[in-house]
């Protein structure tokens, strides 16, 4: 009878018959691991075209506007019908904090500040470098656009924090990002209500209470999940706002 091979780990060589099985099996296992890695990569949901220019701090100049959310009002070189064209860029602080504290003493003032651009599609934002805001002199400017009501609507969508969604994280929404979004809202980062149509196109509305104030602390439990909300949609400049009572939120799951 042929002697059965016996493997002993502390001997330098493994028996030939065992090696003939274990080596190809190990090679197969390794190939399988790499193939699965590629499958996991390909199988991921497509990433949004959102960007955070981390490390690229730029200078900005404009007028701070604290309400309804912190903005930097920047006058563009372009003109519309002879009037100056304005661009509103939302402001947030570094980390998971809103810009309320940073801009508190600058509301309505013309300032210079340093910050990093965050952008997704046509929406952009500035992460302000702490302590970089200085008054630049001159009168603060006021954008001439009027607020236009688009009516009362019940919308299905997802509540997210604007900073991560616009590009600091990718993905910056849905289940895996839920707790991060709660942390960001807890820190005062403005909330967005994202509405998707059947084709996957999105509209982003700045989410505020009926009184126009942030409602972050009342919506933690509903972040990053499908919800229904009722409220008034208003347009001002390029932005849409959703003035809604948080008590109107209903889960869709």
């Amino acid at each position: 009878m042929k002697k059965k091979e016996f493997y002993i780990g502390y001997l330098p060589e493994m028996p030939e018959g065992i090696a003939k099985v274990v080596r190809p099996f190990t090679a197969l296992l390794i190939v399988l691991v790499f193939v699965l890695g590629i499958i996991f990569l390909i199988g991921q949901r497509p990433f949004a075209k959102s960007y955070f220019e981390f490390g690229n701090v730029q200078d900005f100049e404009g007028t701070i506007q604290a309400r309804p959310i912190p903005f930097l009002l920047v006058v563009s070189d372009e003109k519309t019908e002879g009037l100056p064209k304005f661009e509103r860029i939302p402001l947030v602080a570094e980390g998971k904090d809103g810009a309320e504290e940073l801009i508190r003493s600058y509301d309505g003032s013309r300032v210079k500040l340093k910050g990093t651009r965050i952008y997704r599609d046509s929406l952009q934002m500035i992460e302000v470098v702490g302590g970089s805001i200085v008054k630049s002199g001159g009168e603060g400017q006021i954008a001439p656009e009027k607020e236009e009501s688009l009516g009362i609507h019940t919308l299905n969508g997802e509540i997210i924090d604007s900073k991560c969604y616009l590009g600091v994280m990718n993905p910056g929404n849905q289940k895996t990002h839920k707790i991060c979004a709660i942390n960001c809202l807890r820190g005062g980062i403005p909330a967005l209500f994202v509405v998707r149509d059947k084709a996957g196109n999105t509209s982003e509305l700045w989410l505020l209470g009926e009184d126009g104030k942030p409602v972050n602390e009342k919506i933690f439990d509903y972040v990053a999940e499908p919800v229904k909300m009722k409220g008034e949609v208003k347009r001002r400049g390029a932005f849409l706002y959703f003035y809604s009572n948080p008590d109107s939120i209903e889960r869709l799951n």
């Binding site: 570094e94 980390g95 998971k96 904090d97 994280m169 289940k175 990002h177 839920k178 707790i179 991060c180 709660i182 942390n183 960001c184 807890r186 820190g187 933690f220 439990d221 999940e225 799951n253």
Partner: peptide
């Protein structure tokens, strides 16, 4: 990534920020 640089201790954030134990999707 998800829990640091906020108001809460990151481990507290993991434990208390989402308490929807009764929901499969959440």
């Amino acid at each position: 990534q998800f829990h640091a640089l906020g108001e809460l201790n990151p481990f507290v954030s993991i434990l208390i920020n989402n308490t929807r134990f009764d929901s499969v999707p959440d």
